[in-house]
C-alpha cells in the first residue's frame, strides 16, 4: 500500500457492502481473526474482497498470551493461515489471558504483573512472532480488579515486553481511561510514560458506567467519549501520527455514523502529520 494508514474502523458483517464501496483516503479495516477461522465460505470471500483494495489489520482476542502456559498451537496455525492469506498491515493481540487447560473464557482476564509473568509472556510473544514470521503489537486491556502482587506497573511491563521481544504496542486510549478510573491512577501520566517509538497503533472506543458499582466498562458499544478524544489528542501531540482505530463491537451503528467518528480521527492525524 502506498497510502499511509490514517484512521480505520472495525469491520462488521452488516457493513461489508458499505466498507467495500468506501473510498476514504487512508482508510483501513480491523477484523478479529477468530471470526474468520473457517475452512471456506462467505466470510472468507467477503474478507478477500475487502483485502483486495484496503489495508487489513488482524486483531486477535483469543491467543491468551498472559496464560501461564504456551499459546495453543492449533490457534496459532489458524492465525498463520489468515496472516498468509490476507497479508495484513497490522497484527495484534492483548496483554491478557482467556484459555486455561483447554477451556476458553470469552474475556480478557487480568494477572499479577510479576517478573515471572514477564518472562512467560515474553516467551509467548516470541512464539507468536516466530510462527507468524512478523512483528506483532500488544494491547493494554481494560482492568477492573485492584490486584496485589505486581512487580511492575503496566507501562513498565509493556515497555519491558517490547524491549525483550521486539513487539510493538497497541495503545487503547479508552482502556487507559477506563482502567485509570477503575483502579485510581492518572491516565495522563500513563500515556506520557509510554515509549513513543514502540507504539504502532492506537484504539479509540466507547465505554459505559457499570450498573452496580463505580466502575467503567469498555463496552465498545457507544461513541468515543470526549474525555478519551482529549487524551488521544495529548498522545498524538507527543508521539506523532499512528494508525488509529474506531473500535466498535456492540450496538453497531450505521456505517456512516462510524465513519463520522473515523473522519474526526483522520482529521487530527493528517493535521499532526504536517507538524511531524
Amino acid at each position: 500500500m502506498t497510502q499511509p494508514l490514517t484512521a480505520g474502523v472495525s469491520l462488521k458483517p452488516q457493513h461489508y457492502a458499505d466498507a467495500l464501496a468506501c473510498r476514504a483516503e487512508g482508510l483501513w479495516f480491523e477484523a478479529h481473526p477468530e471470526n474468520y477461522m473457517a475452512a471456506g465460505g462467505p466470510r472468507l470471500a467477503w474478507l478477500d474482497a475487502i483485502a483486495r483494495d484496503k489495508p487489513i489489520s488482524l486483531h486477535g482476542v483469543g491467543l491468551s498470551l498472559a496464560a501461564d502456559e504456551a499459546p495453543d498451537e492449533d490457534h496459532l496455525a489458524a492465525l498463520k493461515r489468515l496472516v498468509d492469506r490476507y497479508q495484513p498491515a497490522l497484527v495484534s493481540e492483548h496483554l491478557a489471558w482467556s484459555m486455561r487447560r483447554g477451556v476458553y473464557a470469552p474475556d480478557l482476564l487480568p494477572f499479577p504483573r510479576t517478573q515471572a509473568a514477564l518472562a512467560r509472556i515474553a516467551d509467548n510473544v516470541d512464539r507468536m512472532q516466530e510462527v507468524l514470521g512478523r512483528r506483532v503489537l500488544i494491547e493494554n486491556p481494560s482492568l477492573y480488579l485492584p490486584l496485589e502482587g505486581h512487580d511492575l506497573g503496566e507501562v513498565a511491563f509493556l515497555a519491558a515486553l517490547s524491549r525483550r521481544t521486539g513487539c510493538g504496542l497497541l495503545v487503547d486510549v479508552n482502556n487507559v481511561f477506563v482502567s485509570a478510573h477503575n483502579l485510581g491512577f492518572s491516565a495522563e501520566a500513563y500515556l506520557d510514560a509510554l515509549p513513543a517509538e514502540a507504539v504502532g497503533e492506537i484504539h479509540l472506543a466507547g465505554h459505559a458506567p457499570d450498573a452496580n458499582a463505580d466502575l467503567l466498562i469498555d463496552t465498545h458499544g457507544a461513541p468515543v467519549a470526549e474525555a478519551v478524544w482529549r487524551l488521544y489528542g495529548r498522545l498524538i501531540a507527543r508521539i506523532g501520527q499512528r494508525p488509529t482505530l474506531i473500535e466498535r463491537d456492540d450496538d453497531i451503528p450505521a456505517f456512516q455514523d462510524l465513519m463520522a467518528e473515523r473522519e474526526r480521527a483522520h482529521a487530527l492525524l493528517t493535521r499532526e502529520t504536517v507538524d511531524a
Binding site: 473464557a105 470469552p106 474475556d107 482476564l109 499479577p112 477492573y144 480488579l145 485492584p146 490486584l147 496485589e148 502482587g149 477503575n182 457499570d210 452496580n212 458499582a213 463505580d214 466502575l215 466498562i217
Partner: peptide
C-alpha cells in the same frame, strides 16, 4: 492473596458478566 473486599467482588462481577 491478590484481592479481597467489595472492590474485588465488584471487579469479579464484571468478568463474570462479560464471560
Amino acid at each position: 492473596p491478590w484481592c479481597a473486599g467489595p472492590a474485588a467482588s465488584a471487579g469479579l462481577a464484571v468478568y463474570r458478566n462479560t464471560t
